[in-house]
Write a protein that binds this DNA or RNA. Structure first.
Lengths: 216, 216
DNA sequence: TAATATTTTTAGACTTGTCTAAAAATACAA
DNA sequence: TTGTATTTTTAGACAAGTCTAAAAATATTA
């Protein structure tokens, strides 16, 4: 249906669109670790196929068709991650690269059966919601710890950084999905955050607080 | 590790090697539905990577390294087919194309865990043996029905043609893996074969008898 | 608002894998 | 064994996706 490169571009544009409506060539280049000139070439092709809205120098956004394709890729990615963790017992920091390959397996029938096989999970191992077969899913209402007030209390529910370095750090600190935490103090000097978890105090940096999401 | 095209060539050469030691350019071209000139180009590349033994005009064979890669692809293919049939409940005639895509997922750790998850199956849904993680597997000792004598008796255990047309035909006739059959008569005129199965007689054509394998 | 900096696009080239058409090598047959 | 048919390779071209270098457009700032 779509080439590997096309799918990766659509996914990148979708991801960047969550932050700001309009996505720039350079942002896409950075996201895909490629050059701006390569991006421009691909944007012309995607626009021709009516998957993006594109005017030279003006940035891009996904069309409805493009968004549908992107959401479907995300559905596949998250279902395979769930499979790898729940059925094959991989750790949550080991599955991203594998799922990056598996998300391009084209059969939707396969994905629907996989979904059913696993009991229609609603979130992947990193707490991200899994779109259903029609593409519906709740937008993430999770907040980075860096954005909540002192004394706020919530459940660790997701991450913004999926790198294994970050996930391994969290694991080591016991900061795993489902844990209940309370924000005890925010250090003015460097925006570090002191959390209470399991009746113990734990300090995390601003970067970590930015990338760790909680449900209030 | 290897490109999609390289993997497909190695798999094709492996498959053809089972029939005759040395494989010709035209055979490969036919197997991959491509042109002989394209095959020649790829053969040069595979030879350079020491995956095949190749001298111009003399046909090719796999090196040990090449065979190892090919067997690994076959392992992945057959394990995914088993997964699709046993876990996702696809029919045996529906899984080939999906497995053709899935066999290129590169992680061996993934495949080993999948193997374990399914209890280390020894044969795929079409009766073909599944290599273990070291690449060991029993060569098929199954025989086409067309090659056995009258009064021979055996268990339907495999197929040589994996097309859904053929598999659907077998399904319809009840000729599925595990069934016990007896060869009652071979018609001299057209080599058709009359089988006995479940105390009933059933006639199959020479083509079918050629592609349906039994364990004696 | 004019000069400078940044971003984006264009132009031209490269790689992988494919193709057609023609040449070279091998196989077959008289 | 010589001529013909077949197979295989070479030569040159093309599409997809990428790159570098340079040009064009946009944004910033003095």
């Amino acid at each position: 249906m779509y080439t590997l490169a096309e799918e990766n571009y659509l996914k990148a544009i979708y991801k960047l669109s969550l932050i700001a409506e309009n996505v720039s060539t350079n942002q896409i280049a950075a996201e895909l670790a490629t050059k701006a000139s390569s991006v421009t070439d691909m944007l012309r092709k995607l626009a021709e196929k009516l998957l993006i809205n594109y005017t030279r120098y003006q940035g891009v956004s996904l069309t409805q068709a493009g968004e549908k394709v992107a959401v479907n890729i995300i559905r596949r990615h998250r279902l395979w991650e769930y499979f790898l963790v729940e059925k094959l017992h991989f750790k949550w920091d080991e599955v991203h690269e594998m799922a990056e390959e598996m998300e391009h397996i084209s059969s939707n029938e396969l994905i629907d059966r996989l979904d059913e096989f696993m009991g229609f999970p609603s979130r992947d191992p990193h707490g991200d919601p899994i779109p259903d077969s029609k593409g519906n899913f709740k937008k993430n209402d999770l907040k980075p710890i860096s954005s909540v007030d002192v004394n706020a209390c919530g459940i660790i529910s997701g991450v913004r950084d999926h790198s294994s370095a970050f996930l391994q750090y969290l694991e080591k600190q016991g900061l795993i999905i489902g844990k209940k935490i309370t924000v005890k103090e925010i250090i003015t000097y460097d925006s570090a955050v002191i959390l209470q978890m399991d009746s113990k105090d734990l300090q995390i940096s601003r970067d970590v607080a930015n990338n760790l999401l909680i449900a209030l």
